[in-house]
């Protein structure tokens, strides 16, 4: 079984603020970590490997320092890692990012199963996984909350829907985006980290890809454009209602209705 996990380095803290006057993003410190949702994908991969044998690879796209998350994946049990890094990939939106990753994946070889986390904590789109599967022409299932069966040919999973659970069998090769809490992720191991200290990380740049047309990558390959960023309105609103019970219950009903809970 050949498994690939897509991972991403994200800021350690989501505490970003926009200066309301200048519109400049203010970040509290530059520390980064592996996207927490990717830990679940990585854990899923490790469990499948333990059950079915094979190898687990990871791929990430980012600046050179993103190699850190590949090292972390090694400490959690990954066997191989690839970092896609090139200034010309900068400014990529979902389409360009997924295209770049798909190009990189093609260079890495054939995989039976590609696993992604539900979403990242910085972009929050949950779209890169499904778009990768389109570029690779393989089926995908998102919101996987449980794997009920897996063998050499197929994998059966539970897809979490708003009111139902869809039980689906998919033939390899395929891509799954797993939900938080599918498994409790293991911690990185010091022993493994030491053992893998000399394991290389494969580096890929635009020049290594099959498609070297610059207009397909980075800002040029991105249909969406960010016009501006601004701080959200915060809910500091407070109201105190001191009235008859009948009025209170009516106001409560209207409020809950307005908030769309009935």
């Amino acid at each position: 079984m050949n498994i690939l996990v897509c991972i991403k380095q994200v800021p350690e803290s989501n505490k970003v603020e926009v200066d309301p006057k200048t519109g400049v993003l203010k970040r509290n410190g530059a520390a980064s970590k592996m996207n927490p949702y990717d830990l679940y994908a990585l854990e899923t991969a490790m469990r499948l490997k333990e059950e079915l044998g094979g190898e687990v690879s990871v791929i990430t796209m980012g600046p050179p320092q993103a190699a850190q998350v590949i090292r972390e994946a090694y400490a959690m049990g990954a066997d191989h890692g690839t970092l896609i890094s090139d200034r010309r990939f900068g400014g990529a939106d979902v389409l360009a990012t997924s295209y770049t990753l798909a190009q990189g994946i093609k260079k890495m070889g054939d995989f039976d199963l590609i696993l992604c986390g539900k979403q990242t904590t910085d972009g929050d789109t949950a779209q890169v996984g499904p778009e990768i599967s389109e570029w690779l022409g393989i089926p995908s299932v998102s919101n996987v909350r449980k794997i009920t069966e897996a063998d050499g040919q197929n994998i059966t999973v539970e897809m979490d829907m708003p009111d139902d659970i869809e039980i689906t069998r998919i033939a390899y090769p395929c891509l799954l985006a797993v939900d938080k809490d599918i498994f409790q992720p293991r911690l990185p191991s010091y022993v493994r980290k030491t053992e893998k200290a000399d394991t290389e990380i494969t580096m890929l740049s635009l020049d290594d890809m099959d498609d070297r047309d610059e207009t397909h990558y980075g800002l040029n390959g991105s249909p969406t454009q960010v016009q501006k960023i601004f701080p959200p309105e915060t809910n500091h609103h407070r109201e105190l209602w001191n009235e008859e019970s009948s009025i209170l219950s009516e106001k409560l009903f209207q409020k809950v209705k307005e908030l769309k809970f009935v």
Partner: peptide, 16 residues
Amino acid sequence: LSQGALDVLISDTEER
């Protein structure tokens, strides 16, 4: 590890 620990697991993020 020399005293017989099975491993040493690292928790370096808020989630962990």
